[in-house]
Structure formats: structure tokens, C-alpha cells
């Protein structure tokens, strides 16, 4: 699925949840038709015959609406004893990015898309929602690993059932075996009402990669003030 395409007439890419059709309209114009999750949409782009389209994994993001965060809800709460840390390996579904050269021109969800509100309606944030219900229904080929290090400096037991991660702080890596992983995310509990989430500039897995994508180019932080 994560290949390069040069479209002369038509290319059909079968996806786990639908299909993607690239059809040449003219020498300089290309129509992309997305038929995923029961929804169909198309757009025309000025992509010439000599341009190469690349399909690459991306962190899950907003499809019908814009969101800046991912909310990962664990199937069961993780409990940390006081002043301790642990590393969780979580697999989350990726989206498919359509690139022309280095430019991202479209993204396609490869899993069921749901959103969640983290915090109160006026102060909170909308997030792409990922839980075991979403993860269990997708093909393993579209799952990417993410290492979440949870650190607690609290004197009391900490229970974590969800993590909110800034999407622009995530880096996507694709290996030559089409294995996908992200950078490390650190969750630091310094106060019961203040859980800090940091995206680190360090891959979750140490492997040789053929593709690396980062949208912001910097490490980002989000402070979870409404409970974890």
C-alpha cells in the first residue's frame, strides 16, 4: 500500500476500508476519488504525468473537522505506584498520506474515524479518538507502534486511562518492511491535576527507515488539566 505511483491512465489502490482511485483527467490534471468508510469524495489536482504520487503513513488526524490532538483511551486504566515509571507500547491506526514529491496533498483514514472532547465544552479540545474498539477493527498493516513512557513523581498512586497527544508533535517512521512506528511520548505526572505530555525527538523503535514524516519539526507539549 505504501508505494509510489506514476499515473498514466488510472490506478486503483485497495485499502482495508475502501479504495482510492487516481484517474488522469488531462496531461496536467489528476482526479483523486476516495471511497472509504462508506463515504465518497473526489478532487482534481494539478499533478502532471511526469510527477510521482507517493502513499505514506501519517498520524491519525481530523477528516471532516480539524483537530490538533489524538486521545488514546486504554482498554483498562494503568495504575502507577508512587514515584515510579513504566513504558507502554500502544498500537494506533495510521492515516494514509498522499504526497507529490515532499508535499502532502491529501490524507485518507484507514480506520473508523471518531472524535472526543477532552475537557469542558468551552475550554477543552477536540481530539481524534482511538480506543480498543477502533484498534481491534483494523488490519495490523495499518497499525503503528508508539512508546508511551509514564512517569509519576507523585506521593500517591496514579491512575491513567487516557493520553492526549499533540498530532503535530508526532513523527511517523516507515521501515523497508512496511513496519510503522512513531516517536516516543512521555507522560509526566507532577501534580494530580497536571499531567504533562511531551512528544520526544526519539523513535519508539530503533530501525532503519525509508520514510520519516514530521509536520511541525519540533517537540510539543500538552498539559492534561482535566484528568487522565
Amino acid at each position: 500500500m505504501y508505494y509510489d505511483y506514476r499515473v498514466v491512465n488510472e490506478e486503483v489502490v485497495d485499502l482495508p476500508n475502501g479504495r482510492l482511485v487516481f484517474k488522469r483527467v488531462s496531461k496536467d490534471l489528476l482526479r483523486i476519488t476516495k471511497d472509504v468508510n462508506g463515504y465518497r469524495a473526489s478532487k482534481v489536482l494539478n499533478v502532471g504525468e511526469d510527477s510521482t504520487l507517493s502513499l505514506r503513513p501519517l498520524p491519525p488526524s481530523g477528516i471532516s473537522i480539524n483537530v490538533d490532538y489524538i486521545l488514546i483511551k486504554f482498554s483498562e486504566p494503568i495504575t502507577l505506584i508512587p514515584k515510579s515509571s513504566m513504558t507502554l507500547e500502544v498500537k494506533i491506526p495510521v492515516d494514509l498520506g498522499v504526497y507529490v514529491g515532499n508535499s502532502l496533498i491529501d490524507s485518507v483514514p484507514l480506520s473508523k474515524v471518531k472524535y472526543a472532547l477532552y475537557g469542558p465544552p468551552d475550554l477543552g479540545v477536540l481530539c481524534r479518538y482511538i480506543d480498543h474498539g477502533v484498534i481491534n477493527t483494523v488490519s495490523p498493516k495499518v497499525l503503528g507502534s508508539i512508546n508511551i513512557i509514564v512517569n509519576s513523581v507523585l506521593d500517591t498512586v496514579l491512575s491513567v486511562s487516557r493520553v492526549v497527544i499533540p498530532i503535530n508533535g508526532l513523527i511517523t517512521y516507515l521501515t523497508y518492511d512496511d513496519e510503522i512506528f512513531f516517536n516516543v511520548v512521555e507522560v509526566r505526572a507532577t501534580d494530580k491535576n497536571r499531567i504533562e505530555v511531551y512528544t520526544k525527538d526519539k523513535p519508539s523503535v530503533s530501525r532503519e527507515v525509508k520514510f520519516k514524516y514530521r509536520s511541525s519539526g519540533k517537540e510539543l507539549t500538552y498539559v492534561m488539566m482535566y484528568g487522565a
Binding site: 477528516i63 486521545l71 474515524v113 472524535y115 472532547l117
Partner: peptide, 8 residues
């Protein structure tokens, strides 16, 4: 439905 929030 995509736009019905999972949380709340």
C-alpha cells in the same frame, strides 16, 4: 457516525 463524539 463520525461526528457523534465518542466522549462524552
Amino acid at each position: 457516525k463520525e461526528l457523534v463524539l465518542a466522549e462524552p
